[in-house]
Design a binder for these strands. Structure first.
Lengths: 190, 190, 190, 190
DNA sequence: AATGAATGAGGATTCATTCAT
DNA sequence: GATGAATGAATCCTCATTCAT
C-alpha cells in the first residue's frame, strides 16, 4: 500500500539491510536481491532509489562513516582535557554499533571496494584523515611528536578492527580494544 | 636430477598469477579466466589442478603465508639479541614481496574470504598466532608484559598494512612502516 | 467557448512527446518513462490515458498520418491541373513537419512496429493506399499506365525517406526530394 | 560433444539464426536467448563468440551486405553492355535470399539500428554508396545525368524493399520489383 | 486529474565448471 | 597433459504496468 513519503523510509531500510547482509554473509558478494529481501522490498525498488548496486554500497558506507562521526563528536563533547579527548576518540572508534561483527565485516568490505572504486577510496580516506587529525589536535598540547603518534594510533585502531573481523570468539571486546589504544597513547606521550 | 613435472610448474604459475591478478585488479572478483590467461594456460587446466576456484585462492594464500614465514625465519636467523629479533620480525613483515601493492591487495582479499571460508580463516589465524608467538617469544626476556605488547604490535602491523592498501601515493614505504613498529616496541619495553 | 479538458491537452502532449522522443533517440526503444517525462507528466498518467505503450505508439502514428493527410489535402486544394496535383502530392510528402529527422525516425520505427502489430500494419497500409490512389487519380488524365507509375512513384517517395533517415549531413533537403519525384513523374507521363 | 573447429560453424549458425529470427519476429527485439535457441546453442555461447548482442547484430548485418555484394558481382560478371549491367544490379538487388521476408525485415531493422549505432550506420552507408557508384558507373556511357539518375534508382530500390516489408500478400515478387527499376532506368536514359 | 510507490517479468551478460577430444 | 567447446545458474538492471492515495 503505497504511501507518500516512503522514499526516506525505504532508503534507510535498504542501507541498513545492506550493512547487515554484508555482515551476515561476510562479503561484497551480497546480491541486490538479498539486500532487497532483507529490507522487505523488491530489488527493482532498490534500483529505483539508488540507481545501481555500487551506489547503494556507497550509501551504506557513507552511513557507517556518518554514524562513526556522530559518535566521535558525541564522545568528544563530553571530554575536557586533552587526554580525555584522546580516550573519547578511542572509545568512539570501538563504541556503538561500530564494533559489531556486522559493521566490521562491512568495513572490511569497503576497504576492498575502495581498491577499485575511486569514490569509495575517497570516502575511506576522508575517514582516515579525520581520525588522524582528531588525534593530532588532541595530542598537540601533550607532545611535540603529535603527527607520528597519531598515525601510529590510527593504524593501531584499524589493525584492531581487522583482527577482530577474524576473531572466532563471540562478540568483539570493545573495552579491551579501547584500552589497548589508550595504553599506547599514554605510553607515547609520557 | 629429477625432472620437475609440468604439474609443479603449472601450479606455481597459477598461484603466482592468482596473486598478481588479485593485486592488479584489487579485488576478489578475479575470474578463473583472467588468472588462467595470466598464467598462460586454459582455465580448464586450472580446474584440473586445483579442483575449484576456492582451492586455488586458498593455495595462493598459503603461498603468501609460506613466503612470509620463510622471510621471517631468514631474518630471525641473522638476529642474536632479543631486540634484534623483534626488529627482524618487523622487517620481515614489510619486507620482500610482502609489502607490494599486489600482495597487500591479496591480503585484504583473503581477510574477506576468511569471513565465509573456514579454511581461509584458519589459515589466517595460524599466521596471526605465529606472528604473535614470535613476538612474545622475543619480548619475554625484555618485559613481563609480553603477551599484551605482542598483541598490540601485531595489530599495529596489520593496521599499517591496511592503511597502505588505501594509500594513493606510489609504492608503500616499507622502512617507515618497520620503524613505526620498532619505535612502538622500544617504547613499550622501556 | 468549450473549455478543453485536461485530457485532450495531456493526450496531445503525450503524442507529441512520443514522436519527438522516438526521433531524438532514433529507435523504438523509447520508454514510457522518457515519453512521460518529456510530456511533463508521470508515466502512470500515460497509461491512464492510453492503456498501454502500444496504444500510445499507435496514437502517435495516427497523428503523423493525419497530419500528413491534412497537408496533402491542403496542397491539393490549391492545385487545378493534373500535373499541379501531382506536384502537390510530392510537396506534401516532404513538406511540413514530415521531413524532419524526428518524423523520419518515427516513420521508420512504425514500419518496424508494423512487422509485429497488425493494427500498425493496417494503419501504414491505409497511408500507402491513399498515397497510391491519390497519385493514380491525378495520373489518370495524363497516361493510361497510371497504376504502375503511381506504384513506382510511391516506392520512390518511401525510398527517399529511408535514405534520408541515414544521411549524416544536416537536415534533409525537402525541395531536392520533391524535385526528384516530380522529375520522375514528368518523365513517366511524357 | 565438443569438437575442435566448431567456432566457424557456430558463428555461421548464430548469424543465420539472427537473421531468420529477426525476420520471423519482425523486430530488433529479438533476444539472445531466442537467437541462441534457434542456432541450437546456449545464449552463453553466443556471447562467448560475439561478445555482445550488438556485435552479433552487426555481424548479421555484415553477412547480409556481403551476400548482397557477392550476388551483385556475380550478376555483373555476366553482363557485357551498360544496359545489361544496370539490369544486373537491379536483379541482384532483389535476387537470391535478399528479397525474402526474413531479410527484408532484418534490413529494416538494421536501418533502425543505424539510428543509434554509428558502426551500423557506417555499414549501411557503405552499401548505399556502393550501390550508387555501381549505378553511376554503368550509367555513364548512356547519359550525362548519371549521378542524379543513379540516386533516384537507388532510392527506388530501397523504397521497393520497404514497401514489400509491409505487403501482406505472400512472398515478394522479385521480378516485378526488378522490372520496376529497369523500367525507370530505361525511361531515364532515353 | 494525477502521481509516487512498488513490482514481476524478462533480458544481457558473466563465470565457474564440465567434458570430449 | 592440455584445451576448446559448451552450459546452467546467477546477477544486475530495465521497464511496462498496477494501485492506493
Amino acid at each position: 500500500m503505497p504511501r507518500v513519503g516512503m522514499m526516506a523510509i525505504r532508503k534507510d531500510a535498504l542501507v541498513n539491510a545492506t550493512i547487515s547482509e554484508i555482515g551476515r554473509r561476510g562479503s561484497l558478494d551480497v546480491t541486490m536481491g538479498q539486500i532487497a529481501k532483507a529490507a522487505g522490498v523488491s530489488s527493482a525498488l532498490a534500483h529505483h532509489y539508488f540507481g545501481s548496486k555500487d551506489h547503494l554500497l556507497l550509501a551504506a558506507m557513507r552511513a557507517i562513516l556518518v554514524e562513526f562521526g556522530a559518535a566521535a563528536r558525541a564522545e568528544l563533547a563530553r571530554a575536557s582535557t586533552p587526554m580525555e579527548r584522546l580516550t573519547a576518540i578511542a572509545t568512539a572508534s570501538f563504541g556503538g554499533r561500530n564494533f559489531c561483527p556486522d559493521v566490521i565485516s562491512a568495513w572490511l568490505t569497503f576497504y576492498v571496494m575502495a581498491q577499485r572504486d575511486p569514490q569509495a577510496a575517497r570516502l575511506l580516506r576522508v575517514y582516515q584523515q579525520r581520525l588522524v587529525s582528531n588525534l593530532i589536535h588532541s595530542l598537540r598540547p601533550l607532545t611535540n611528536d603529535a603527527p607520528r603518534i597519531a598515525a601510529t594510533a590510527a593504524a593501531l585502531i584499524d589493525g584492531l578492527y581487522i583482527r577482530h573481523a577474524l576473531a572466532d570468539a563471540g562478540p568483539p571486546d570493545a573495552e579491551a580494544a579501547t584500552r589497548r589504544v589508550t595504553d599506547y597513547l599514554e605510553l607515547a606521550i609520557r
